[in-house]
Design a protein around this nucleic acid. Structure first.
Lengths: 189, 189
DNA sequence: TAAATCATGTAAACGGTTACATGATTCG
DNA sequence: CGAATCATGTAACCGTTTACATGATTTA
């Protein structure tokens, strides 16, 4: 239950319309809290009803028309409250690791390619994060930017871990080829 | 949509009752794919109806009575099929990182304690994983065990990353104390 | 035999995902 | 003016979470 707080944070950083928020959830915020446009619109409706945000006045409200939101004092209070509480880390739920465990019982068919594919994806993401760090965070600045940089460095660390682990896994799997007792990976020779 | 495949994997490793599965999802399998007993019972029902698993005969079926399941050939086929397809990595969704980003706009109240709390939790989990590795995986053995060890090493790597990052984060936050422009963390002096 | 706990389930609420609908604006 | 795309939404479905219900078995 943190989507509303992700949106409040994003709106405090900069008042935005639903679509603008969606774009930002595809870049910065979304790197650690993803959300689709439907989730965002639904949540904006709830937050407005709850009196935590409001649509900026100015233009007439109609269907396909842009609508900008800003955070009200009650919204800032709620975010402050949430941010001073505890959030337990959620257990890992990773399909690739599950697949490895499955491969141990039904065989390694296609495992090598899948590991390679993930390696490519994680290398790409890592490069993207590092690009952002080089571009947006030069010398350590104000506390706000230092905190945001810390978040980015978590992303870099995670991707670095995956790249290393996948390289290790690929080596290990390559070393297994032709090993005995492997149902899904019969020897080629 | 991988819970059924997690259960099939677990049942292939060892036929079990619902509660036994729940226990195993609190230990080994659950380290990378968590599930509650309600999810498991519901899914066992679906898998049985679909003809992928069956209840071992022997005892009478009644409400509070143990019921063991085993995987049928169709179940193994389905798991094999699933395990040879692609599973895209899901984007990160981490409340602690979101909280850091929120702290950048509403202040760092309580942040230090929360980081310490997470550090304790991750150190504990890391120790548990390392205990398992020392106990269950001595010299590298058959391919099955090597794959399971790889999965465990992913858990170790992830927890190691978090411990390191949290230590970095704590140092960084400590260095910020008394910095200017921090709404939620007024100077004590 | 009463209490604890083992074991299997039901029901409701919530959040996320996917598919679709529709009005407004821009551009060829 | 027709097509693309910008922008806001609705609806249905699915998986997860939380709370509760209930029968069987063990143990004090």
């Amino acid at each position: 239950m943190s989507l509303p707080h992700a949106i409040l944070t994003a709106l405090l950083e900069k008042p935005s319309s639903g679509l603008e928020l969606t774009r930002r959830f595809d870049r910065s915020i979304g790197y650690f809290w993803s959300a689709t446009h439907q989730q965002i619109y639904r949540e904006l409706g709830k937050l407005e009803q709850a009196g935590l945000i409001r649509a900026l006045p100015s233009d007439q409200p109609s269907r396909g028309q842009k609508k900008e939101f800003e955070v009200l004092p009650a919204g800032r209070t709620e975010l402050t409250r949430w941010a001073s509480g505890e959030q337990d880390p959620k257990p890992i739920r990773d399909a690739l690791l599950l697949r490895l465990r499955a491969a141990a019982v039904v065989g390694r068919t296609g495992l090598d390619e899948e590991l390679r594919r993930h390696l490519t994806l994680h290398r790409r993401q890592l490069a993207e994060y590092q690009g952002i760090e080089d571009r947006d965070f030069g010398a350590a600045a104000d506390p706000e930017d230092r905190l945001r940089r810390l978040v980015l460095r978590a992303g870099i660390g995670l991707e670095t871990f995956w790249v290393q682990w996948l390289e290790e896994a690929l080596a290990e799997v390559a070393d297994m080829e032709g090993a005995p007792g492997e149902p899904g990976a019969p020897r080629q020779v």
